[in-house]
Design a protein around this nucleic acid. Sequence first.
RNA 1: CGGGGCGUAGCGCAGCCCGGUAGCGCGCCUGCUUUGGGAGCAGGAUGUCCCAGGUUCAAAUCCUGGCGCCCCGACCA
Length: 570
Amino acid sequence: MRYSELFLPTVREIPADAEIVSHQLMIRAGMIRKLTSGIYTYLPLGYRVIRKFERIVREEMNRAGAQEVYMPMVQPRELWEESGRWNHYGKELLRFKDRNDRDCCLGPTHEEVITDLVRNEIKTYRQLPRNIYQIQTKYRDEIRPRFGVMRCREFSMKDAYSFDADEEGVDISYKKMFGAYMRIFQRCGLRFRAVEADTGSIGGSFSHEFMVIADTGEDSLVFCSTCDYAANLEKAEIAIPEGRKVSGEEFVPLETVHTPDMKSIEEVSWFLSVQPRDVVKTMIYSADGIPVAVLVRGDTDVNEIKVKNYLNCDVLEMADDTMIYKATGAPRGFAGAIGIKARIIADYSLMNMTNFVMGANKEDYHVKNVNIGRDISVDSFADLRIARDTDLCPRCGGNLLFARGIEVGHVFKLGTKYSKAMKAVYLDKNGKEQYMVMGCYGIGIGRTVAASIEQNHDEHGIIWPLTIAPYQVIITPVNVNDEKIKIISEKLYASLLEKGVDVIVDDRDERAGVKFNDADLIGIPLRVTIGKKALSEQKMEVKIRKSGKVKILATDKVVDFILSYVNEGM
RNA sequence: CGGGGCGUAGCGCAGCCCGGUAGCGCGCCUGCUUUGGGAGCAGGAUGUCCCAGGUUCAAAUCCUGGCGCCCCGACCA
């Protein structure tokens, strides 16, 4: 490609509305432009990167035995009612009516469509297993799109769905996909971890997320310093204490104390001269409309996902003031477990606590010396709090490390959630009807590209790994008005093209500085500079974007050097 | 949905308080010079000042309503 003919609008200034580096650089490097909130156009340079990444995805999916299809984005309400998600998916599911007044939605994911297809076409165990995938546009009506293509409304995703005869089969399919994902992200040169994850609104029995490690990531990750354990913070387990051991301490009589306007744990513990860890936080939640009191130690925080999963409810939200008042008889800030009209569940951290402080269910009062068993009864103890760096690994007892991550892939073992809801069955060897056992596997295409930029950039711009770089080489004639330089760069351009190298020649009549800066910004891995000085000695310069190293090579060695560098990096 | 901010040339912004000819930098176009890290000089083009209504002799500026975008939070693949 000739730069002079490229539709590549680079921008010098940092766009005011771009927060994170990848967003800034994708705009500056002329990869994307915003149409409206959370909806982007990919320009030629950006789309080339997308295509390169998609190609890796396709190669690895095909290698793992998956087959590509292309499903519709517009989907009928009926399918979503069958799966039960028409009501449960929430506002992220964009719904609309067609001209015949039929309810439709834009697909945020394709479990319904694929399950419908497969149940109609696959009838016997002989046709199983199957793994079917697509790369398709999804629409999720995000509450707040941000970070460019990282969290947007319309985006491209690779989604695969596996159908197996039984549990054993789905475990094999899951492992294959897991392996394919490892290869995909390795080939992109990303630093990433697979972590245990919550299944969210997709559902299913267990899942792993593939997380690119980056400080700007929206997810918190926990991993063990000694064993392989790694999890999303929202999933990270905390080792169950060995049992209730009351530390010999005597139960002290209850005492109600006046705590005017002291609502937070900090205020109460300061006011009563105790440690936050001596106070119990009583959080009132509405679980499908029913009040539940969740008790955690004052120095820890409730993990709502754990609570939601423990209660197995559809909607879990903080109770509103009315519900709090009904349950406790007091305004927000003074809830406690004594006499509360709600189910009480407590985090394991309460098992060893004695004579603690909690709200009195009365405005401006707290109670001291509360004890479980004597003063309150707890329905059950469970792991309900967010893991902290002082916690130990639930598997081996090692120390936990924390990091931020960008979720680029997610693999789910779905089980029979959708096949049961939508009656996707086959006949087994005995002629008996069985539910297919499913898995689903997603990769965010645009997001992976953005994550790669988060990890690979410097103050000058993007630093693409060779495997997904829009072009592998850029030739920079320092001055196109110099006939000799021009002829030689054209010659090099032609011979690289002939060898199948993705090459761009910057034939613009611009000053060298402009070309160098643009080349750095768009992040091409190799830059060949053709200038008067080196040329007079029959030499050219090859600069490696990543290391910044410059090689001065004899003119006739340049093509060979590039070919071996490129082949090694792919 | 709650809180905050912004909307003026392609981009980044000033002007708005205190109403009176719409500006700056970058980019763009033309010419000359220049040519190894975002050139210099000279000349030039470009605006429904987000939209609608109101106040006023006069509105980018004041008032009302709307729309859009961004940030924080709640929420979530």
